[in-house]
Simulated assay, not measured.
Amino acid sequence: MDFYTIINQILVLFIVLFLGYFIKKKDIIDEYANKKLASLVIKVTVPCLIINSMMEQIELGAKEILGILGLSIAVYIFMFLMTFIVPRLIGVKKENIGVYKFMIMFSNVGFMGFPVIESIYGKEAIFYTSIYNLPFNALIYTLGIYLISMDNKNNVRFKIKDIFNPAVCAVIIGLIIFSFKITLPYVASQTVRMIAELTTPLSMLVIGASLADIKIKNIFSNSKLYIYSFLKLLVFPILIYMIVRLIGFNDIMAGVPVIITGMPVAANAVIISKEYGGNDILASEGVFISTMLSIITIPLLVFLLSN
């Protein structure tokens, strides 16, 4: 792992993010266009990225796949336990506890996780990440909605179809292709690959544009967000790093949970908060602060993993 090469790649990602911020500020795109781009990434390009990664015939058996999935479940259980500790530790108001719980549990996997993981470990790591993120895709529209809605006591009913979102369906399709060593026709495979390559630039543009409407002057007075971000972006990933290293996982299996846990708040926090009556302003501020601080913390995590 060449640390300086990776840092340069990550800097490129953040330059594209700031470009997204700029084009939104200059009204080159508006909120409607940004939402449509976000939908395009979540529903089309990320699923293609997942399928594309699984078209590569990587020597990975059922034991390794179950190991990745088990590791992910263990990390999410740990993060869920932290949702009972961190809000009390930093003195979160009762009406905002649900949003903070959500921000602790769910990182920015789709828009930042995949691009950053790929820039560090290459395309092979997307396969690992796709399996690792299965619990995320299943939980964010079930447990995530519950956590956000608990602040206003809404009764939310979950539908089983919410679990089978495009990313989960892509993993299922990808696993079928991988398990049965199916070779797609050239036209199909190249189409999937071309669309998959749109994920990184579109994702970073969407994040940057999403941050453009936040009133920065109001954020600096919320000290709780900075304490939360320190825990989320550095403390928790380092704890997970220490544990996975003790267990003896290989570089990619050790790195994926550390990097994913150290990602900023999931952009979905704002959308779900608006839809289910959570504090969407707080969610927006959490996304903004954690994303900006991740410019510093992600290179620190990469340095830790490279040594």
Results as ranks from 00 to 15, higher is better:
Phe3Lys: 00
Ile6Glu: 04
Ile7Leu: 15
Gln9Cys: 05
Leu13Lys: 06
Phe14Ser: 09
Leu19His: 05
Phe22Gly: 08
Lys24Ile: 00
Asp27Asn: 15
Ile28Tyr: 14
Asp30Thr: 06
Glu31Pro: 06
Tyr32Leu: 12
Asn34Gly: 03
Lys36Pro: 02
Ala38Leu: 09
Ser39Asp: 13
Val44Ala: 14
Pro47Ala: 08
Met54Asp: 02
Gln57Phe: 09
Leu60Gln: 08
Gly61Ser: 01
Gly61Asn: 13
Glu64Trp: 01
Glu64Gly: 00
Ile65Met: 15
Ile65Gly: 12
Leu66Asp: 04
Ile68Leu: 08
Leu69Met: 13
Gly70Leu: 10
Ser72His: 10
Ile77Gln: 05
Phe84Leu: 14
Ile85Met: 11
Ile85Pro: 11
Val86Glu: 07
Pro87Ile: 01
Val92Tyr: 02
Glu95Asn: 13
Asn96Trp: 01
Ile97Thr: 14
Ile97Gln: 10
Gly98Tyr: 09
Gly98Asp: 07
Val99Pro: 02
Ser107Leu: 01
Met112Asn: 08
Gly113Cys: 08
Val116Lys: 09
Glu118Leu: 05
Ser119Arg: 12
Ser119Gly: 04
Lys123Tyr: 00
Phe127Ala: 12
Thr129Arg: 00
Asn133Arg: 00
Leu134Pro: 05
Leu134Tyr: 07
Pro135Ala: 10
Pro135Phe: 11
Ile140Lys: 09
Leu147Phe: 09
Ser149Cys: 05
Ser149Ile: 05
Asn152Val: 08
Lys153Asp: 13
Asn154Gln: 15
Asn155Ser: 14
Phe158Asn: 10
Lys159Leu: 08
Ile160Phe: 14
Asp162Ser: 13
Phe164Asn: 02
Ala167Gly: 06
Val168Tyr: 01
Ala170Thr: 05
Ala170Ile: 02
Val171Thr: 10
Gly174Ser: 04
Ile176Val: 15
Ser179Tyr: 12
Ser179Gln: 12
Thr183Asn: 14
Pro185Asp: 04
Val187Met: 10
Ile195Tyr: 09
Ile195Ser: 03
Leu198Cys: 14
Thr199Phe: 01
Thr200Ala: 15
Ser203Met: 02
Met204His: 04
Leu205Glu: 03
Gly208Arg: 08
Gly208Pro: 08
Ala212Arg: 09
Asn222Asp: 15
Lys224Asp: 05
Lys224Cys: 01
Tyr226Phe: 15
Tyr228Met: 13
Leu233Phe: 07
Leu234Met: 14
Pro237Cys: 05
Leu239Met: 14
Ile240Trp: 09
Met242Ser: 13
Ile243Asp: 04
Gly248Ala: 09
Phe249Trp: 11
Asn250Pro: 00
Asn250Met: 00
Ile252Ala: 00
Gly255Leu: 03
Thr261Asp: 02
Thr261Leu: 01
Gly262Asn: 06
Gly262His: 04
Ile271Val: 15
Ile271Cys: 01
Gly277Lys: 04
Gly278Glu: 02
Asp280Cys: 01
Asp280Phe: 15
Ile281Val: 14
Ile281Tyr: 11
Ile281Trp: 01
Leu282His: 04
Ala283Met: 09
Ala283Ser: 12
Ser284Phe: 06
Ser284Gly: 15
Leu293Lys: 03
Leu304Asn: 11
Leu305Glu: 07
Asn307Arg: 11
